[in-house]
Simulated assay, not measured.
Amino acid sequence: MKIGLDIMGGDFAPKAAVLGAIAAQKALSADQKIVLFGDKAQALPFLTEEGVSPDDFEFVHTTEMIGMGEHGTKSVLQKPNSSISLGFQYLKDGKIDSFASAGNTGAMLVGAIFSVKPVPGVIRPAVATNVPKLKSGFGIMLDVGANADCKPEVLAQFGMLGSLYAEHVYHIQNPKVGLMNLGEEEEKGNVLTQSTFPLLQKSDINFIGNIEGRDLFNDKADVIVCDGFTGNVMLKLAETFYILTLKKGFKDEFFDRFNYEQYGGSPILGVNAPVLIGHGISSPEAIKNMVLLSRTMVETQFVDKIKEAFK
Rank of each mutant, 00 (worst) to 15 (best):
M1A: 12
M8D: 00
M8W: 00
M8V: 00
D11V: 03
P14W: 01
K33G: 00
I34M: 12
V35F: 14
K40P: 07
A43C: 09
L44Q: 12
P45E: 05
F46G: 02
F46T: 00
V52H: 01
P54F: 06
E58Y: 06
E58D: 14
H61M: 08
H61G: 04
V76F: 10
Q78A: 13
N81L: 06
D93Y: 08
D93P: 06
I96Q: 04
F99S: 05
S101H: 04
N104E: 00
A107Y: 09
V116Q: 08
P125W: 11
I140R: 01
L142I: 00
A146E: 06
E153I: 10
F158I: 01
I172K: 15
N174M: 06
M180P: 01
E187I: 15
I208Q: 07
L216Y: 04
F217H: 15
D219T: 14
D222F: 02
I224C: 03
V225P: 05
G228D: 05
G228R: 05
N232H: 11
M234F: 13
T240W: 04
K247S: 11
F250D: 09
F254V: 02
F255N: 03
R257Q: 10
E261F: 12
Q262W: 06
P267Q: 09
P267G: 12
V271Q: 12
N272Y: 02
A273D: 10
G280K: 03
I287D: 08
V291Q: 09
S294I: 12
S294T: 10
T296P: 00
V298A: 11
E299T: 15
V303F: 12
I306S: 08
E308M: 06
E308Q: 14
A309P: 02
